[in-house]
Design a protein around this nucleic acid. Sequence first.
DNA 1: TTACGACGAAACGGTTGCGTTCCGACGTCA
DNA 2: TGACGTCGGAACGCAACCGTTTCGTCGTAA
Lengths: 187, 187
Amino acid sequence: MLREDVTEAIRAAVFEELATVGYARMSIEGIARRAGVGKTAVYRRWRSKLHLVLDLVSALAVQGLPAPETGGLEGDLRMLYEVTSRALRHPVASQIIPDLQAEAARNPEIAEALQKALREGQEGVALKIVAAAEQRGEVRTGLDEELALDLISGPLYWRSVVIRSPKLPKGYLAALARATAEAIKAL
Amino acid sequence: MLREDVTEAIRAAVFEELATVGYARMSIEGIARRAGVGKTAVYRRWRSKLHLVLDLVSALAVQGLPAPETGGLEGDLRMLYEVTSRALRHPVASQIIPDLQAEAARNPEIAEALQKALREGQEGVALKIVAAAEQRGEVRTGLDEELALDLISGPLYWRSVVIRSPKLPKGYLAALARATAEAIKAL
DNA sequence: TTACGACGAAACGGTTGCGTTCCGACGTCA
DNA sequence: TGACGTCGGAACGCAACCGTTTCGTCGTAA
């Protein structure tokens, strides 16, 4: 029987290694070293670095987010942004996400795992928000939902991950939610 | 006198290596091999992988883009998106950008070079577009310009680089420009 | 024509990680 | 108490690169 505490130590070490050196530079030896564990313990659980990371990413994907229901598009967006920006504020997340995203450009399996995690998280919630607004008649029915999702997710990602703005000014999320709601209503 | 054709072969090889294996995995030996050149030729020009990449990125930053002037916010955005999406369509660009972007999270020098290239390219043009719209009275003066830039740049980046949508449906850029113009007018 | 310097190729010793194997120590369950 | 399986640690041979040095070749400019 594999010891759960050892498994957990390895998992934690992988996250830290991913954040500090990135997927490409990450080595099994480094993971074992950081976890205070023998290489054997790692190989006994996962066949390779890829399997290890795929396993972790898939596990993350499981945690489905609840869709906000404030009764209005702008309010729903505001809540989504609140949750998302809090998640992106964690240094670990903001280091790991772009790294895996870049890796996904080269590795279809990572790309798929990442897409799935995204779809079950952020994108899934956004889609529910748009559908609810459609049903309320708040926005045009039959609008391009993919475009709506880009309008919703793009700006905050750009600001937090690409521009890497350390913190958002007060009122930013509220203004973003208002502007995005207007954009979607214009579709 | 260093031979210019050799220098150019190295530069081209670096782009190819960056695209195929990424910054982290890229090696001087690999670059020289791909360029059909001795390692000495590389080291004679650049002290390290970092200097080499910084040099290339800085060189890219120089090419300033012209700001579109259609006389309207939506039209200007439309033209900006046309140019940007064409650039992002090149596989080399769409592979290298997220890779360097992830690397920038760990290396301040790369981050700075990338920010500078961004500011002198995409972001610079976007800022001019917003300023022109302000002057025309098309949008509220004194609006949050950083937020406007996020609204402009975020969605297309999200769609092209994060979602990695292979090609955009007909009419997508037009609809995006319209929706974004509405969003900015709502600021 | 001669001198210089960049060129590609090869080798240097050193480091790191690969994936595997063997070891003795420890814990758990029968 | 004994058997089993996981544990951390160490070593295996192998491969890739590091940054440097040495070599003989070739092109160019004085």
